[in-house]
Design a protein around this nucleic acid. Sequence first.
RNA 1: GGACCAUUAGCUCAGCUGGAUAGAGCGCUGCCCUCCGAAGGCAGAGGCCAGAGGUUCGAAUCCUCUAUGGUCCGCCA
Length: 596
Amino acid sequence: MPAQMIQGRETRISDMNLFADIRALVVATLEQMVAQDALPVDLSFDAITVEPPRDAAHGDMATNAAMVLAKPAGMKPRDIAEALSTRLTADERITSAEVAGPGFLNLRLAPSVWQQVAGGVLEAGTDFGRSALGQGVSVNVEYVSANPTGPLHVGHTRGAVFGDALASLLDYAGFDVTREYYINDGGAQVDVLARSVYLRYLEAHGQEVAFPDGTYPGDYLIAVGEALKDKVGDAYVDEDESVWLEEVRDFATDAMMDLIRADLEALGVEMDVFFSEKSLYGTGRIEAALADLESKGLIYEGVLQPPKGKKPEDWEPREQTLFKSTDHGDDVDRPVKKSDGGWTYFAPDIAYHYDKVQRGFDQLIDVFGADHGGYVKRMKAAVSALSEGRVPLDIKLTQLVKLFKNGEPFKMSKRAGTFVTLRDVVDQVGPDVTRFVMLTRKNDAMLDFDFDKVLEQSRENPVFYVQYAHARVSSVMRKAAEAGIATDDAVLRQADLTKLDHEAELALLRKLAEWPRLVETAARSNEPHRVAFYLYELAGDFHGLWNRGNDTPALRFLQEGDAATSQAKIALARSVAIVIAAGLGILGVTPAQEMR
RNA sequence: GGACCAUUAGCUCAGCUGGAUAGAGCGCUGCCCUCCGAAGGCAGAGGCCAGAGGUUCGAAUCCUCUAUGGUCCGCCA
């Protein structure tokens, strides 16, 4: 399935991706060689890459073309590389092409090529790096999808930030993105919610109530109980559950969703679609999805083997209605009906994904917490079966967040009421810091979140370090304005960028040139954390150049009495700020104009 | 018993889908403040990429097995 997804995103059209440009040049040159009988026909150029070398001393870009083609062409890598080298250097952008190592071709590009990167950034603004990778491909990203039984906690926060940043990243890469939240409002847990709210309702009427096991004792339901009282008065006080359950359930889930929407808003997350599980019941939609599977011969009555190793106390073999998910890569077949005839949790999930497939999405992504890892295979099996392999489903799991306070682990307990909510986090450190920090780890790695450290203003705090770089550029712009130097982007675009000829400046330009490529790489792997790491590196390079200005006045962004040179250098600084702003925009973080 | 994820410097983690001598921050060692912002800067030491096999021109990356840690394992959601 991943292979299909990668293929689906293979259309690469980029106007400002230098690496793609040079790769195109390499491929065109190879085709020319084929036409001149310097290479055999029918070679595939797909595996050829042009990328930044690990070691900058090797050059600006490296291509593996000779090594990839050596075997199928029946030639020595060095011979191909030599021939390619001669032809490539004819292009004015290439100043040298040296064969190295096992057959790498190391390319050096003319300074003017790099200098033009700043012009490209100023021209495109925060659209610099937008890609056509996902052109014409629609993606549905489902995330958060927390049960509507209470406020979002810190675990949901990571999923919310990750899913939202991923959606933005894909949008930036040209995909047609839908952000979606699946409301689990159809199962037994919303009945539990209803009973809990009912108890708070009785409490609002002055009764003493106790919260037995299996109810939610949280304070956040007090207001809901009171609101229910305001709405229905004492109509349900002495009534049986059968009278009030349905209405109280709807009332309570609506209230919880209001709460959750407000939480998401505080974090800056905005969904396109809220999809109700309940809408699948009693409308024939679950039946329709299962009928689809049945028509493919994937539904049968059978008995599952008990799990080995640990024996459930009350295990009894039972005949159940099963989905033959093993036909689509799962380990065991999965029940879709409970022994009492009701649907399992899996059944509406199948129907929900069936709905997504029918809405015509080309790709699906689900973001789950790591504790739902066991559902990955069955969901993929379901989507594979329902779409007959047409729609790839990628499931991203977000690992636990471990909370710390000043280096000390922060104990959470639902019973003691000390569990940390999304709101707690956002109120303490703000949405920008929350979001950035949540993306400073790969999604499937555990994340330490220290309430104090994330607010520290030091190099080891990436949030600060990146924001500081952006703020420093703003500071330069302000100082330039005070010195009477025009710094509008329109003016900077006319600056003489050939003045950016110092190696340190060219290095920073090279880093900027990597941005479009990084966007595509991150989007292909559905990994927004790569954006955060890139920004940290870019900020580091920028700070490095800034610091060199301490010893080398010629590298300072403001050159007293030389407006033309100042403008060229400011164009570079401004380009850095633009890319940082674009990257932060993907992460949902507001760039800082100054540090406080 | 099984599935999934992790394992990279003393610590916390990246590593661009298979490329060259494996990187960053912290910590450690040594230098550096009349200087656009020292809430720092520069340089250095530090690695058998958990272990063992395999795939090929080439592996931290892909495959198999092993070890350790985490998550999960009819009808709960």
